[in-house]
């Protein structure tokens, strides 16, 4: 019987393997962050017809800074996608646009975000109408445990959008139709929204968001919990909705970003590295980090 293996130095017996490429990349990046991440964003941050202008946006969770000096314009009736590796701050930034970060106690946002020229972080701004103008669709479909009708009617009800039942019915019908769900659910509007399939639930959430006629819809990885067919439906839907709404979508799928968006912003470690026309970003990225990411070198 030999000595307890735990007490022995087993290090020499394990051949040190070369670390996985991904680890190497991130390790190298975190060491060389200041060297690699550019001081200013590459590409064109301005847009000729912006609905949202973000300037010097910083987000802190307690002492930790999650988003650094983001400057970005979001064009009207366009789809802008935000891509980047996990933890790069793209969702955090998205949640700044309708002040959903307010719900996190330790979150703090500095800088200005102007929606049609008005700073939404102005203390005078009320978040309730803001969130009616800037709707949100979440990663996991989260319909209320109520009927399909009540799910869509909830927003119009709390904001008093419909004068009577007829008008409310019309809003619900139109919203479901725009979300491409009406045909599937029109006979069972009184049944629980939670009984729908995942893709249907997500489209229900989109219908719920557009029922209050927002200007902007924020989508935080709306397809990450869905199968390819449901994803394709949502992507078609996003393309249609672009006519009437501005859409900001956070996605982990570069194909999705390429398919649905006109502009793409690449985030890295809390910095907005590069932004530009989607075609340009995916065919001819300017920054090395963007190139590495879209070519699948990491992330």
């Amino acid at each position: 019987m030999e000595a307890n293996p735990m007490t022995q130095d087993i290090r020499p017996e394990i051949t040190p393997e070369p670390p996985a490429p991904r680890e190497a990349a991130s390790a190298a990046m975190s060491e060389a962050r200041s060297a690699e991440v550019p001081d200013t964003t590459f590409g064109v941050i301005e847009h000729p017809d912006p609905i949202i202008n973000c300037r010097d946006v910083n987000v802190f969770y307690g002492d930790k800074q999650a988003v650094f000096d983001v400057n970005l314009d979001i064009g009207r009736h366009q789809v802008i996608s935000m891509i980047g590796p996990s933890g790069c701050g793209k969702s955090t930034f998205l949640r700044c646009l309708n002040r959903m970060n307010d719900t996190i106690d330790i979150a703090r946002v500095t800088g200005t975000i102007e929606l049609d020229g008005q700073n939404i972080y102005d203390p005078k701004i009320d978040v309730v109408p803001l969130r009616a103008r800037v709707g949100m669709v979440f990663q996991k479909p989260n319909p209320f445990p109520k009927s399909i009708y009540d799910n869509v009617a909830y927003g119009p009800r709390i904001h008093g959008l419909a004068k009577d039942k007829v008008e409310l019915d019309e809003i619900v019908r139109t919203s479901l139709e725009r979300a491409g769900l009406l045909g599937e659910v029109k006979d069972r509007l009184d049944q629980p929204g939670t009984g729908l399939s995942g893709g249907q639930q997500q489209r229900l959430c989109i219908a719920r968001a557009i029922a209050v006629s927002p200007d902007v819809i924020l989508m935080d990885e709306p397809c990450s919990a869905l199968d390819p067919i449901a994803t394709a439906k949502i992507e078609d839907l996003i393309d249609e909705l672009r006519e009437n709404y501005t859409i900001c979508i956070v996605t982990h799928s570069m194909q999705q970003a390429a398919r649905v968006s006109q502009r793409t912003a690449y985030f890295h470690l809390g910095y907005l590295v590069e932004v530009g026309e989607t075609d340009k970003i995916f065919t001819n990225p300017t920054h090395k980090l963007t190139e590495d990411y879209i070519t699948g070198r990491f992330g």
Binding site: N98, V127, V128, R131, G135, F138, P145, R208, V212
Partner: peptide, 23 residues
């Protein structure tokens, strides 16, 4: 209660109180 329900309500523009009492 899953936080996603609160987020859904707040994301719709419900006030804190509406989110709490309705959902």
């Amino acid at each position: 209660v899953p936080p996603s329900i609160r987020e859904a309500a707040l994301g719709m523009g419900a006030s804190q109180m509406q989110s709490t009492f309705h959902h």
